[in-house]
């Protein structure tokens, strides 16, 4: 690995620590997904994609989280659980809508059982297209969200 790319990795790690004072804690919420996105979110933590090398990790409780990674078109039955989970995240917090369903309602948008995309319920900081998005795309999406966060804290 050359010096330039190694520095980029360092910068990413530094930025995360700078923004949060520690590593990035991500809480995943399935608000109506088909579970395809869950396969890819789980892949993020395997040794091949290894988001932990950037100081990003998936946490068990929204109360420990900095970011909600939401999948699925929000169903009628998940609207309240999603809102309650969001409220349980202590500020400062971010929301990333992952996948076609979370970004737009996807193929399920016209359904009686679907409220709509995540941004019809929560403020969204970044959208990640894909069905499902591959792990590298999710990493890129989280980075885009972090860029926005940097703007917000100025």
């Amino acid at each position: 690995m050359d010096e330039a790319t190694e520095r980029m990795g360092e910068q990413l790690r530094e930025r995360i620590v700078q923004l949060f004072g520690r590593s990035l804690a991500i809480r995943e919420v399935d608000a109506g997904s088909c579970n395809g996105c869950e396969v890819e979110v789980n892949a993020l933590t395997n040794a091949v994609h290894d988001i932990e090398r950037f100081g990003m990790h998936i946490v068990a409780s929204p109360r420990h989280a900095d970011m909600l990674l939401v999948t699925g078109a929000v169903t009628r039955n998940m609207e309240m659980p999603l809102i309650r989970t969001y409220r349980a995240v202590p500020p400062p917090k971010m929301v990333v809508a992952m996948g076609s369903c979370a970004a737009s309602g996807g193929m399920f948008a016209p359904s009686y059982a679907v409220i709509g995309p995540v941004d019809s319920i929560l403020p969204v900081d970044a959208y990640i297209p894909g069905c499902p998005p591959r792990p590298q795309a999710i990493i890129q999406g989280i980075m885009v969200a972090l860029d926005r966060w940097e703007e917000r804290s100025r």
Binding site: C34, G36, T75, F108, P110
Partner: peptide, 30 residues
């Protein structure tokens, strides 16, 4: 259960057959 009830069967009734393949793929993603 029922939290991720998306109304697949009703949606299917208004989804032309050739598009229904893509809906079927997304009933249970894995």
């Amino acid at each position: 259960l029922g939290y991720v009830h998306r109304g697949v069967e009703k949606l299917s009734e208004s989804t032309p057959y050739h598009k229904g393949v893509f809906l079927a793929e997304r009933i249970s993603g894995d």
